[in-house]
Design a protein around this nucleic acid. Structure first.
Lengths: 148, 148
DNA sequence: CGAAACAGGACTGAAATAGTACTGTATCAG
DNA sequence: CTGATACAGTACTATTTCAGTCCTGTTTCG
């Protein structure tokens, strides 16, 4: 099945919990409770999200995490990229030269365009929308990507 | 990285080769040569594609495969689903009840909408377009999915 | 009958994923 | 100053999935 990893899924849940807490600091422990996940797992995710600049951490007693910017400014694409790395449906659409079939592969260029469409779909949904279960907004994306 | 499996990638190449041959029968061997892939791999893919109804097979001497319908009527989504199964970014968006977090998970509904957007993006590109490297058409999708 | 070609299933090695543990460092309370 | 709390970074392991291969059976044609 074409899907994101479980960790990416968890990351969106954790980020939604953080969004719900506004600018208050939340410890990994508290977030694990909210998200009903294991502490080590949440901790690992938060570290990756911090490195990606999506959350900021405060160390020491009464430390914790908070969002680096408003939920409206964080997209699902940001979270997916933070956990999984760059979005690319095929290997050759991210790294050239690893396939060996490229010179005579007629489908490569088209995959790149599909990649952009999917990245656009993920980038069009913000964390703020994700946190609202009953969001009425339909998913419409700026999918008019440049050819080739 | 968010991506389709290699086999799915190969399947699109094999399907593009079949599209190039029109309604002529092509053996697994001949397709493997065209796609520069191993025969067993291509054979395995063709079996799955046949079960999904995308190609039809003819047994016996001078047998082989051909597309089940015109390349314009086969989409990338069809191929992805044939090889990988249903498109779903998260487990819970395909199978309900396996997560345990569903009752209090605010992001589930939103993932379903993202799924539909991505499925739409994949369904908007046909095999005919995939076979044309210089296709000028931009990827635009009917992404106005129903809310929730 | 025998060769060609698809059908179906089983098997294996490699790689990615998910989860866990341990050590280190920074901050604050007392 | 000392200890407790909480994040940072690294390493490890078990599980699962993926990719690839092989074998046996069935169908068709010469």
């Amino acid at each position: 099945m074409l899907r994101v990893s479980k960790l990416t899924d968890y990351a969106t849940v954790v980020m939604a919990c953080l969004a719900a807490r506004g600018s208050d600091l939340a410890s990994a422990q508290a977030l694990a409770d909210s998200a009903r996940l294991e502490v080590p797992t949440v901790s690992k995710l938060l570290k990756q999200l911090a490195q990606a600049g999506l959350v900021v951490s405060t160390r020491g007693v009464n430390g914790g995490y908070r969002l680096a910017r408003a939920p409206e400014g964080i997209t699902i694409a940001d979270i997916v990229i933070a956990i999984e790395g760059p979005i690319g449906m095929t290997e050759c659409s991210v790294h050239s030269g690893t396939c060996g079939h490229e010179p005579h592969c007629g489908v490569r260029v088209n995959w790149r365009r599909i990649n952009q469409a999917i990245a656009g779909a993920l980038a069009s949904v913000t964390l703020a929308e994700m946190s609202r279960p009953s969001a009425r907004r339909s998913v419409s994306t700026p999918l008019r990507v440049a050819s080739a």
